[in-house]
């Protein structure tokens, strides 16, 4: 077993395009859940409309990629509005179910035969992001030190991804320390109190849903660009669960929480994947587990991690556990 290469895999995972993309989507979720207390379990729906905004605009309508990104973000605004109208007046737990249901409804429709002329149905769309990669300033080849290296394509997506992470985090930072952010946090703590002080809680929740949703769509668009393809079934509720794991790992309601969470999450996941694969290859588990099961075991690990975090470190591994204990609900 080559431990160094397994470790290299892990380090690659923590800075790779996926980590940046999930960090972006988790920042959006942080606006919802971390700062406003909205139990949005349909964040994947915003990623889906962002991704398909790009894919459909380019592959189906032949528009430019950049128009496609704008279409994706526009779709996220529309989705936030139509999702918010029925659900934002509901109690938190109703909201969770309604949003996860909305995400599934959208997935069903995007994969349906009705939508096939537009979305490509179950097999989705491909090869729509060439203009993005034409801008790649890195000449083809591999870059890195030792076992940690990236091809020029990944490096380009990573660069753009992490720059976006920084810019979006800065925007969120400016917003949440303003009086606007103060109202959001007040809504998270107690929405009746905010209302009794003359705050239009519904409007603030809607603004939060739109902002976080658009950020999620940025993540979705980048995800589609990164793999040059979209398939509806990869936008299932489990993606949202990943995002919650990331957010809680890093600490919800903090600026660096989603970023640190995503880095650690992807390190653990890729490290563990690589470790399991080589352990299976070395025959450590006999017939008990084969290579095809590694994907499933990754989910077991994520689930277990989510449970342990929530039980023992609900404020995240860097958060102050005392702070969450104040939260008596």
């Amino acid at each position: 077993m080559d431990f160094l290469s397994i470790l290299g895999n892990g380090v690659r995972g923590m800075f790779g395009p996926e980590a940046a993309i999930y960090a972006i989507a988790a920042i959006g979720l942080n606006v919802h859940f971390g700062y406003t207390g909205l139990l949005n379990f349909g964040q994947v729906a915003f990623m889906l409309v962002g991704a398909y905004g790009v894919a459909v605009s380019v592959a189906t309508f032949g528009w430019s990629l950049w128009v496609g990104v704008l279409v994706g973000l526009g779709c996220a605004v529309v989705l936030a509005l139509i999702l918010g109208i029925p659900t934002l007046r509901l109690r938190g737990d109703y909201l969770a179910i309604a949003t996860i249901a909305a995400g599934e409804i959208l997935r069903y429709f995007y994969r349906s035969a009705y939508a096939e002329p537009l979305t490509g149905g179950v097999y989705g769309l491909r090869q729509f992001a060439d203009p993005f990669f034409e801008l790649n300033p890195f000449p083809p080849g591999r870059y890195g030190i030792g076992p940690i290296d990236f091809d020029s394509r990944s490096l380009w997506v990573m660069t753009v991804g992490w720059i976006l992470v920084v810019l979006i985090s800065l925007l969120v930072f400016l917003l949440v320390r303003s009086p606007w952010g103060r109202v959001l946090r007040a809504v998270r703590e107690d929405e009746l109190a905010a209302r009794s002080l003359g705050k239009n809680v519904y409007s603030f929740k809607m603004q939060s849903l739109v902002l976080g949703g658009v950020i999620g769509a940025v993540g979705g668009a980048l995800l589609a660009i990164n793999v040059q393809s979209v398939q509806p079934d990869s936008y299932n509720p489990v993606t949202t669960f990943y995002l919650y794991a990331i957010l809680i790992l890093g600490g919800a309601g903090t600026i660096f929480g989603p970023i640190i969470g995503s880095i650690i999450f992807w390190f653990i996941v890729t490290f563990f994947d690589a470790f399991l694969r080589s352990a299976v290859g070395a025959g450590w588990f006999g017939d008990l587990i084969d290579g095809a099961d590694v994907g499933a075991i990754r989910f077991v690990l994520v689930g277990l991690g989510l449970m342990l975090l929530m039980a023992f470190r609900p404020a995240g591994i860097l958060g102050d556990p005392k702070e969450l204990r104040l939260d008596v609900r």
Partner: peptide
């Protein structure tokens, strides 16, 4: 808290299902 347990149940579901 209830939200804490709600998210734990998601983790439990992932573990059992897989």
């Amino acid at each position: 808290g209830l939200i804490q347990m709600f998210i734990m149940s998601i983790g439990l579901a992932l573990v059992l299902r897989h």
